[in-house]
């Protein structure tokens, strides 16, 4: 008989006045409708609007100043794409010559038939046959990894998968976190030494999968292995998933080192216990400590 653990909601801990006091000094926090400045010498950035002659905040967040430009960065938003970002998305629609991809952005992204590598690998014009066979490559519900190629005028993203590292994702686990806690790095694909691989999408979608043995060049990123995944691999992936959720709950930046440290800190606990608030706090504290030591 499996026992079920139940708990009552915990008391909401207020921030210590000292911490919020020191915070107030070095950060300029605003809420919608707050006047940032009535000086006309500034430029209006994201998260602000002009109310008559006053520069006013339109979101709740922190004011960022770059020379004359004033922006307000909200705590939580949808993903704002930039060219070159690695994203993970889900196909929502197959249209003529394009796929629509849901990427946690404010409009669905577009993956053009002309910006994918087709199986076979050769470079050629896309024929009518390719258009008819689009659903054989990617169909609704498939997950893909891709790179942002350009941004349309209305803010929608255009993606491409013109590299063997991008393409359809096979077996693995998707974890959704806030896009703001994914650290921008040179590479977002990591083979972690603990025995699994991770793709940290800039859009807050994180993909965990067993480290592939060898890449089949011919398939061009559309080959998905249906081999059963060993129990050991699945346990590593489950542990990583819970670690990612713990890191996200405590707003720790996600990158290979932080994920790995968190994984190592969690090894003394059972996988399911990582999500318990008190154990989560302990693991995160240890992770933060190691990260600080690593930097210093």
């Amino acid at each position: 008989m499996a026992s079920v653990e139940m708990r009552l909601p915990a008391v909401h801990k207020p921030v210590s006045p000292a911490a919020s006091q020191s915070n107030r000094d070095d950060k300029h926090l605003v809420v919608p409708g707050d006047v940032i400045t009535s000086d006309t010498g500034f430029m209006r950035g994201h998260g602000t609007y002009m109310d008559e002659d006053r520069l006013t905040a339109s979101v709740a967040g922190e004011v960022e100043r770059v020379n004359k430009l004033i922006c307000v960065r909200p705590l939580k938003t949808r993903y704002n794409g930039e060219v070159g970002d690695v994203v993970i998305g889900r196909i929502t629609e197959v249209q003529q010559k394009r796929w629509k991809v849901e990427t946690n952005s404010r409009l669905d992204s577009v993956l053009l038939l002309s910006s994918v590598n087709l199986p076979g690998g050769e470079l050629r014009r896309r024929s009518a046959q390719d258009e008819l066979a689009m659903r054989d490559y990617l169909q609704e519900g498939d997950l893909i990894s891709a790179e942002v190629q350009s941004i349309f005028s209305d803010g929608a993203l255009s993606l491409h998968t013109r590299s063997l590292k991008y393409g359809k994702l096979g077996q693995g686990v998707l974890v959704l976190v806030s896009p703001s806690i994914v650290k921008r790095q040179k590479t977002h694909f990591h083979n972690l030494p603990c025995g699994a691989s991770i793709i940290l999408g800039n859009n807050g979608y994180v993909w965990l999968y067993p480290t592939p043995g060898h890449q089949d060049e011919e398939a061009g990123g559309y080959y998905t292995s249906m081999e059963p995944v060993s129990l050991a691999d699945r346990e590593v992936i489950s542990r990583l998933r819970n670690c990612l959720l713990a890191l996200a709950a405590h707003k720790v930046l996600l990158y290979d080192t932080s994920v790995l440290y968190c994984y190592e800190a969690s090894l003394t606990h059972q996988i399911k216990d990582i999500l318990k608030p008190e154990i989560m706090e302990e693991i995160i504290l240890e992770t933060r400590q190691r990260l600080v030591e690593h930097e210093g």
Binding site: V31, P32, G33, G47, Y49, D51, T56, S58, V59, A60, G61, P74, L75, K76, T77, R78
Partner: peptide, 11 residues
């Protein structure tokens, strides 16, 4: 709406 980070003129 404020929590979602959606721009508003005011509360």
């Amino acid at each position: 709406l404020v929590d979602a980070g959606i721009p508003m003129r005011d509360y």
